[in-house]
Amino acid sequence: MIAFLVRRFGQALVVMFVISLISFSIQDNLGDPLREMVGQSVSEAERQALRDEMGLNDPFLVQYWRFLKKAVRGDLGDSYFFKKPALDVILEKFPATMELVIGATLIILFLSIPIGVYCAINPRSWFTKLMMGMSIVGISIPVFLTAIMLIYLFSIGLGWLPSFGRGETTMIGFWETGFLTRDGLLHLILPSIALSSIMLPLFIRLIRSEMMEVLEQDYIRFAWAKGLSRTRIWFLHALKNTLLPVITVGGVQIGTMIAYTILTETVFQWPGMGFLFLEAVNRVDTPLIIAYLIVVGVIFVITNTLVDLIYGLVNPTVRLAGGQA
């Protein structure tokens, strides 16, 4: 266990190092920080003096080291637009994105497993054929189009659900949540469906094909020969083996999920990190871009570690300490 954590920590360091390098080079290349701070009216000599004072003329490594030291303390500079520490601005929006992801994940979990299992057990039923047909259509519709269609249908057309923003939210400590009010939950419905729209058919197909493969295995035939009940064979013997590759793919999909939050938040004007990031790109708000990259990097590291831990718990042949057996 300790060895696993150490190895994980090492990987995290590498990932964060790469991100910090990228971030730092963006900071260096995107526009001129001086212009953002003092405007055009200052003379060249004064500029040079200011550059020296700020250390912008120091060698690369010195500057990078200074950037790292500040970054570790959580100081990524102030956002040009908001005039506030960039990290604070991003973290304020973190709960909104997180709740969107939770909503989508719940939809995926509670639909893909039962549907995928059903389709594997009943390969010839009409429902399976319908699901397989729908899933290939679902995979072919981009997330932002699903989002637009949902808005057009349920907001503009039927007027049932709100089309943008988070609605009424409640503060719990630093966490701004939409889970506690009816309005907040209503606002969450369409964005969550949109965010889950491509992953859901993907997972249904994955679970179905993995489960069908597992059902052909000798240990499943042996389980039948032992006279066990169907539910026990399907939902314990087969499902537990099916979930192993699904967990792995789920880990890989986390990155895609985060990318899709940018799309979903843009369409629904959901005040989350992705929406903020795109605005920052358009405004060339470098510190904010950097802060976003670093927060996303941390999320990657944490979620991938969690996925590994879960995988290790489900699969006894993997020892967390020694890698794959």
Binding site: Q217, D218, Y219, F222, A223, L236, H237, K240, N241, L244, V314, N315, P316, T317
Partner: peptide
Amino acid sequence: MTLNPVLT
């Protein structure tokens, strides 16, 4: 192949 790998 006969014993289920994820159950004791």
